[in-house]
């Protein structure tokens, strides 16, 4: 057998060095895409169940139709509040814009900033905080929506619509919450030591996750709220 000359110079580059990967991409980037693929199946299951159960509830309230309780004669209105949810959808979409600016600010941390505009656009903390704040605003809308639905007589136990609606949107809300915590963590790190180009991948995967959660909401908003 050939014996191996083992000297420091012959030792191959560290396997964890992102520059040594087969694709040239960071491991985290590939893992987050695999994770997003998996999450697609998670939300596909939730959304399919919602759609399969649409119109099968025995009692109201219903999403788009009024319903009169035969035992009390009380009429319950269509429960979805599309104007309010449109506003919250707009907020979430704007958070994706803020996220893009946050990532760009981190990537361009070392580029000299000359004007006030460049300094604002290059302020990664500002945009990370803005993204998180918009996410929190969205969650506030959702909390308002959930409580008002419960007051109008729709709980998770009421009917199939209630069960599938609260579970679907609740899962999405939980994902937004996880994203907000992630963003606030990045914000804290940025304040503490400053995020720079070497942290790009860590902000990038948070951004991919955030955009994914946003895209899922577009699907939910269309399929649950807009289509009657």
């Amino acid at each position: 057998m050939t014996s191996v000359p083992l000297t420091a110079g012959h030792v191959a580059p560290d396997a964890h060095d992102p520059h040594a990967t087969s694709t040239g991409l960071d491991n985290k980037k590939i893992a987050i895409w695999a994770f997003i693929g998996s999450e697609c199946m998670l939300f596909a299951s939730l959304i399919s169940t919602y759609l399969i159960y649409k119109g099968r509830s025995k009692v109201g309230p219903f999403p788009h139709e009024t319903w009169t309780d035969p035992s009390t004669g009380k009429t319950l209105h269509a429960i979805l509040n599309i104007p309010v949810t449109s506003a919250s959808t707009f907020v979430l979409l704007m958070s994706s814009l803020a996220m893009v600016l946050a990532l760009a600010a981190v990537q361009n941390k070392n580029v000299p900033k000359r004007t006030t505009g460049e300094r604002i656009l290059g302020n990664s903390s500002l945009w990370l905080l803005a993204t998180a704040a918009l996410g929190i605003t969205f969650l506030g809308f959702q909390a308002y929506e959930f409580t008002s639905f419960v007051h109008e007589g729709l709980s998770i136990r009421t009917n199939l619509f209630g069960s599938s609606f609260f579970t679907l949107t609740g899962f999405h809300g939980a994902h937004v919450t996880a994203g907000v915590i992630w963003l606030l963590t990045l914000f804290a790190i940025d304040r503490k030591r400053g995020l720079g180009p070497r942290d790009e991948v860590n902000v990038d995967i948070a951004a991919l996750y955030w955009h994914f959660v946003d895209v899922v909401w577009i699907a939910i908003f269309t399929l649950v709220y807009l289509i009657k």
Partner: peptide
């Protein structure tokens, strides 16, 4: 993820009284 959701529904049915 698909069985995760199926199990979540069952868990919610059993613990929170949902109707899945």
């Amino acid at each position: 993820p698909v069985i995760t959701i199926a199990l979540v529904f069952l868990m919610f049915d059993r613990f929170f009284g949902t109707n899945f």
